[in-house]
Simulated scan of single mutants.
Amino acid sequence: MGATFTLSEEIDVVVKKLVEQEKEFKILSVAKIVTRFRTGTWYTRGKLIYAKTKILSMYERFEMDAEILILVNKRMWELLTDQQKEALIFHELCHVEASVDKNGAPRNSPNDGRPVYRLCSHDLEEFKLVVEKYGLWRPDAQEFMDSAKKGEQLTMEFTPQNHKKEPSSNVIHLRAK
């Protein structure tokens, strides 16, 4: 079965809450963010995709009257707790930052005058095998671990262990460490 897409007021509520409450997302207060559930098998390089964020092209902005699209794997969403759903959307919003000119001023589109955004990479780019063998050898890895220790740690565990197949009746357990 191919992918299908549906509207999601539930995701919209979480996006709105985070943009209003979290100082990290102040730049998104004027953004038009479209959210959709995606159904169907969704893997990239053998890894299950929970969600994706896309900065819309100028044409897509025109067609959708928005700057940002957040697609969420509906099947996974239904398995998450409310706190995990919020963490997932927080993660996706962290991928967005304001596009700036050479002077550091926010850029606006010449077509509609609305802000222009760009995708932001993850803070940590490392393989677990490297960390297992060499430890936290990079400063960004150590900074990441220091941040992880600051707050309550949540772990999502799947049953069964093989993530390469579409989960059918998997249960996600939330465990505070």
Results as ranks from 00 to 15, higher is better:
87 A>M: 14
19 V>H: 05
94 C>P: 00
60 E>I: 02
118 R>F: 12
140 D>L: 01
74 K>E: 15
65 D>S: 06
148 A>Q: 12
166 E>C: 06
95 H>D: 13
6 T>V: 11
103 N>T: 06
54 K>M: 05
134 Y>N: 07
160 P>A: 06
69 L>A: 12
54 K>S: 05
166 E>S: 05
109 S>F: 07
77 W>S: 02
121 S>E: 13
127 F>K: 02
40 G>S: 12
131 V>A: 01
94 C>K: 13
37 F>R: 08
111 N>S: 10
30 V>A: 10
100 V>R: 14
122 H>F: 08
28 L>S: 01
143 E>C: 11
138 R>G: 00
10 E>N: 13
58 M>V: 09
171 V>G: 01
40 G>C: 08
46 G>N: 11
65 D>N: 13
135 G>E: 01
149 K>M: 13
156 M>Y: 02
157 E>Y: 10
95 H>K: 10
96 V>A: 11
50 Y>I: 08
8 S>R: 13
76 M>T: 00
61 R>E: 09
100 V>Y: 01
150 K>D: 07
56 L>Q: 13
25 F>N: 06
22 E>Q: 14
169 S>L: 13
58 M>H: 04
48 L>H: 03
46 G>Q: 12
44 T>I: 15
35 T>D: 08
49 I>A: 02
151 G>V: 09
169 S>Y: 05
145 M>F: 15
146 D>S: 10
3 A>M: 11
105 A>P: 00
134 Y>R: 06
15 V>S: 06
165 K>S: 09
130 V>A: 07
75 R>G: 06
79 L>R: 15
155 T>N: 04
57 S>N: 07
12 D>E: 15
134 Y>D: 08
9 E>I: 04
103 N>S: 13
57 S>L: 07
52 K>C: 04
47 K>V: 04
29 S>G: 03
24 E>P: 00
135 G>C: 04
59 Y>E: 13
